[in-house]
């Protein structure tokens, strides 16, 4: 389970002059992100490119620290309880990032060992995942010439290797063909059925609509709405998620203008 409260994070603008005002030196990548993702559910973090999805996931994955706000993964604080969070979390960043000179099996085995499994258990767990994710045909080939779908499977297997309760996937369907996307959706659904908490980030409406039980809409570093698909449609009075998304993001910018006028 993930609970994020008022997460905030800014970055120094590359090449920003120190002479400029502080607000101009920094980019506010994440301004106010609050949402929750329950166990046994697929939660979608939906937002356009540059909305702050990846930064949010990185904060949750303890890779960067939030400036303010807090978040917990299965009850462990991401800012203070780093190792416990990592133990409970499987994170698949948006680039597969697998080692091309290692085989699929070696890639997974390496992560298993790093997660503290001994040699025997690592081997066993790697075998399990290879079977579970249907990777037998390419498991012992070097990752060099893998297709995007194969790479994604290896990366997903690595994220699952230490049996984390919570799983975060950053735009996992990027670059996948229809069949691979379908296969991946199936895997993600199964994981949710097994009781895992799944956080799934994407900028593709149809994908989120098809897969997610719960949706948090993020734009310009802020989560503007969080509900089930039906809840969001009802709340915005729209018929599909795309219109609802536009409505939700516009209401934010209207509020912003109203705020400026005050």
């Amino acid at each position: 389970m993930i609970i994020a409260k008022q997460l905030q994070r800014s970055f120094k603008r590359p090449g920003a002059s120190r002479l400029k005002a502080k607000s101009e030196q920094y980019v506010h990548a994440v301004k106010s992100v609050s949402f929750s993702a329950q166990d046994g559910r697929i939660t979608g973090l939906l937002g356009p490119n540059g909305a702050g999805k990846s930064t949010t996931l990185r904060m949750l994955a303890t890779l960067i620290k939030p400036e303010s706000g807090s978040a917990t993964i299965d009850g462990h604080n991401v800012a203070t309880d780093v190792l416990q969070v990592r133990n409970h979390l499987g994170f698949m960043p948006h680039n597969a990032g697998i080692y091309p000179r290692l085989t699929a099996r070696e890639n997974i085995h390496y992560y298993a060992r790093l997660c503290g499994l001994d040699r025997k258990n690592s081997k066993q767990r790697t075998g399990e995942l290879i079977e579970q994710l249907e990777m037998l045909t390419f498991a012992d080939r070097r990752a060099n010439g893998f297709s995007q779908g194969q790479k994604t499977k290896v990366a997903l297997a690595r994220a699952l290797v230490h049996r984390p309760q919570t799983i975060m996937l950053d735009e996992p369907t990027n670059g996948l063909d229809v069949m691979a996307t379908r296969g991946l959706r199936e895997i993600i659904r199964n994981l949710a059925v097994q009781g895992h908490c799944i956080l799934f980030s994407s900028h593709i409406m149809q994908e989120v609509a098809a897969l997610c039980d719960h949706i948090a809409i993020i734009t310009d570093g802020t989560v503007v709405m969080e509900d089930s698909l039906n809840g969001i449609l009802q709340h915005t009075g729209q018929h599909d998620l795309e219109d609802a998304f536009v409505h939700a993001t516009q209401s934010l910018s209207n509020e912003g203008i109203a705020g400026d006028n005050e």
């Binding site: 990185r58 994955a61 303890t62 890779l63 190792l83 990592r86 133990n87 979390l89 994170f91 698949m92 960043p93 680039n95 990032g97 697998i98 080692y99 992560y111 790093l114 997660c115 503290g116 990366a155 690595r158 994220a159 230490h162």
Partner: peptide
């Protein structure tokens, strides 16, 4: 490949 590596325990 550094990002997933550093998110391990």
């Amino acid at each position: 490949s550094l990002e997933p590596l550093l998110s391990l325990p």
